[in-house]
């Protein structure tokens, strides 16, 4: 069981959260983005083997999104923060 430290609620069990995927993506501008930019945003992922920045939704808690840096080879959680905050530790 992962223990995810919610910045608002403190350490909580993984089962309170639902996974929302890669946190490094920035939605392209509706006005100016090209089709290629949309393709890259919607479909392509870095999928790194190591530290991975991702979003979890605290669905059964405060219902806010939490940014998590987690090593996907060990499942160790390195850092957590609010969705727009910077995480500590080395990752991408």
């Amino acid at each position: 069981m992962l223990e995810i430290k919610c910045p608002w609620c403190g350490p909580r069990a993984q089962t309170e959260f639902s996974y929302a995927g890669d946190a490094t993506l920035t939605r392209p501008s509706l006005d100016t983005a090209t089709e290629t930019e949309w393709y890259e945003h919607v479909y392509l992922r870095g999928n790194p083997r190591g530290p991975h920045d991702e979003l979890w939704h605290h669905a059964a808690g405060c219902r806010r999104f939490v940014k998590v840096r987690r090593d996907v080879t060990t499942h160790e959680i390195i850092a957590t923060a609010g969705p727009h905050e910077h995480l500590g530790g080395g990752g991408k």
Binding site: D22, E40, Y43, L44, R45, G46, N47, P48, R49
Partner: peptide, 18 residues
């Protein structure tokens, strides 16, 4: 499951999550 990791060696991002 390591397709994404190998593709990175060829400088590719894939429509895949492991």
């Amino acid at each position: 499951g390591h397709t994404g990791h190998l593709a990175t060696m060829a400088g590719m991002r894939l429509p895949i999550e492991s």
